[in-house]
Each structure stands twice: as structure tokens, then as C-alpha cells.
């Protein structure tokens, strides 16, 4: 029997109503996350990539239950959220580190207080919480004697992000959701924080959800990668499958939009034209068909579901790969 996944999201849906129409009526619905399912195995890192508006941050917030889904279920360790496990307990086991290290910290709390705050609220004695804060500062590479009494504005961006990581670890979580956590850092500092994250994962046996727009960083950090487009999963698979044999035309386009790093082989043609469409009124059928060079009549009419490909857990939502789809390129490599 396959062991139950540590975390499982099934058919998550989150729509945001746009207000501001006549008499406060709704002007439309942002389909931020539309029927998204995935599992997390213990100890793995799942990378989530996609462009703005693809729903990766909304997915992150749903995982941590910062917002509640309109539909769908979340289970942690086999326990259904809202039934067998409370949101409070879930958040203790799943912590999050955000992109903006400054906005994430209370400007009036010292680093020690910021880290100790959560444990104290959850019943730890002040002395114990302070000791824990010092231990965690040490663990993320900040000397407690120098940093415990400092305020956020007295730290650099890299140091603040280390504190945010320390704070996320204060509850000994099983899962840490990293939502563009290194994106705002300078490259040289980013590499230090990535090293720290890798070390912590090895030491503490953590499971990561690693969200980033930087495909190089995602490749380096992840075991599996989920590619999202306009609120849906376009493709999910092992990092090797996604990067070396992408099945969805969107994944292929994302990869070839990466700058080449070779002055003799510069990119000559942009893989896609135009911007990602607005998630308020996403295209019917396959949401990518408006930008896809393989688009056929079926793509505008029928929404493709995720279809399993050969290879470990490799799934793609594209008619080219769905048997009997009538797509003219059916069976041809994307």
C-alpha cells in the first residue's frame, strides 16, 4: 500500500468577487484557484511556478488556511481540515515565509520578541520562549547576542528573511510554505538563504512548498514541480520530467523564455506573444489556448483535465496528450 501523503489538497476552488459595481453589486469574479489538487509527500520539496495571476500565491494561502477555499478539501496527515483537525492546529504544523521580509515583521518588536510571540500566545512561558528564540536565531545563522535586541529596520533584507524563517520554525512545523521568499533578495544573498533552507530541511526533515517565478531557483530546490496557469494546474511532475521533457506547451514556453546565458546562442524569438490573460474572465476551454501555437478547435471548446503520462506522477492538462481528444497534433511532442 502506498503510504498516505503528508498533505493533500483536493479540488481546491477560490474565487474572489470584485465589488464596486452599481449599488455594491459584483462586477465579476476572479477565478484565482479553480479546481487544483496535489499531494505532498513527507520530506519532499514541491516547486510551484507560473506567472502573475496564475494562482500560486492564493494556493499558498489556502495551504496554510489563511483564506478558506470556496470548495475542496485539505487533509494533513490523513486528518480532514475542519473535521478532524482545527485550523489552529493546522497552522501550527504548516508555517509560511512571505516575500516581503520587512512587511512580515512588526516594526515595534525586537527579533527576539517577534520569534517568541507565537509560542507565548500558544502558552509557552516567556523565559522558555526567549530561550527558544535565541536557539532559533543561532540556527538561522544570526548570532543571538548581536541580533536578539534589534528591530527590523536595523537588519538587512537577508537577515530579516532569516528571522522570518526562524519564526516559521518556532512551532517545529512539518511543512513550510515559501512564497517567493528569496525573490526580493540580491543574488549573492539569495544563494546564502537557499543554502540555509537546504540545511534546515536536512536537519529537521521539513517538507517545503517552494513558490517562485525564478525557474533556475525552482529547479535547484525542488523534487517535483507544479506549473500553474490562470488558476489551474497545467502540468505536474518530477523536476527532471518538467525541465527536460515538458509535456504542456505552456511549460515549454516558460522554459524557453528563460534568458540563455550563452552569448553565442541568444534567444531569437519570444516563445509567446502578449501578456497572460486576466483571471477575471479566463478563456473558455483550455485557458492557455489563446496563446498556444498548437491550439486546435477542441482547445477552445473543451477544458482538458489532468491526464497521467508515463513517468512517475507526471500529469498534464493538454488535449495533445489526451487519448481520443481529436486534437490535430495528438501524439506529437509539444
Amino acid at each position: 500500500m502506498i503510504p498516505a501523503p503528508l498533505f493533500s489538497a483536493q479540488n481546491l476552488v477560490k474565487h474572489f468577487r470584485l465589488k464596486g459595481g452599481l449599488l455594491g453589486s459584483s462586477r465579476g469574479v476572479v477565478r484565482a484557484v479553480d479546481n487544483v489538487s496535489f499531494d505532498l509527500a513527507e520530506g519532499e520539496t514541491l516547486g510551484i511556478v507560473g506567472e502573475s495571476g496564475c494562482g500560486k500565491s492564493t494556493t499558498a494561502r489556502l495551504i496554510v488556511d489563511l483564506i478558506s477555499p470556496d470548495a475542496g478539501t485539505i487533509t494533513l496527515g490523513g486528518k480532514l481540515l475542519g473535521k478532524h483537525i482545527s485550523a489552529r492546529e493546522l497552522r501550527r504544523q504548516i508555517q509560511m515565509v512571505f516575500q516581503d521580509s520587512y512587511a512580515s515583521l512588526n516594526p515595534r518588536l525586537t527579533m527576539e520578541d517577534a520569534i517568541a510571540f507565537g509560542p507565548k500566545v500558544n502558552g509557552m512561558s516567556p523565559q522558555q520562549a526567549a530561550r527558544l528564540a535565541h536557539e532559533l536565531l543561532e540556527r538561522v545563522g544570526l548570532e543571538p547576542r548581536r541580533f536578539a535586541g534589534r528591530y527590523p529596520h536595523e537588519l538587512s533584507g537577508g537577515q530579516r528573511q532569516r528571522v522570518n524563517i526562524a519564526r516559521a520554525l518556532a512551532f517545529s512545523p512539518k511543512i513550510v510554505v515559501l512564497d517567493e521568499s528569496v525573490s526580493a533578495l540580491d543574488k549573492s544573498v539569495e544563494a546564502q538563504v537557499l543554502n540555509l533552507l537546504a540545511d534546515l530541511k536536512a536537519e529537521l526533515g521539513l517538507t517545503y512548498v517552494f513558490i517562485s517565478h525564478d525557474l533556475n531557483v525552482v529547479r535547484h530546490m525542488s523534487d517535483r514541480v507544479m506549473v500553474m496557469y490562470l488558476g489551474q494546474v497545467a502540468e505536474i511532475g518530477t523536476v527532471e520530467a518538467i525541465y527536460s521533457a515538458p509535456a504542456h506547451p505552456y511549460t515549454a514556453a516558460l522554459l524557453s523564455a528563460m534568458p540563455s546565458m550563452d552569448p553565442d546562442r541568444r534567444t531569437m524569438e519570444a516563445p509567446l506573444t502578449g501578456d497572460p490573460p486576466n483571471p477575471i474572465n479566463p478563456p473558455a476551454g483550455c485557458r492557455f489556448h489563446t496563446r498556444c501555437k498548437h491550439a486546435d478547435t477542441i482547445c477552445a471548446a473543451v477544458e482538458p483535465g489532468l491526464f497521467g503520462l508515463p513517468g512517475e506522477g507526471h500529469q498534464v492538462a493538454c488535449h495533445i496528450h489526451i487519448p481520443g481528444s481529436n486534437h490535430r497534433n495528438r501524439g506529437v511532442e509539444a
Binding site: 506567472e51 525557474l215 516558460l254 523564455a257 528563460m258 534567444t267 506573444t273
Partner: peptide
């Protein structure tokens, strides 16, 4: 800009 738009503007 998004990755697929970035490359368009660079070119």
C-alpha cells in the same frame, strides 16, 4: 514583468 513577457521586451 512576467517571464514570457520579459523575453518579448528584451528582444
Amino acid at each position: 514583468l512576467d517571464a514570457t513577457v520579459q523575453i518579448q521586451i528584451l528582444l
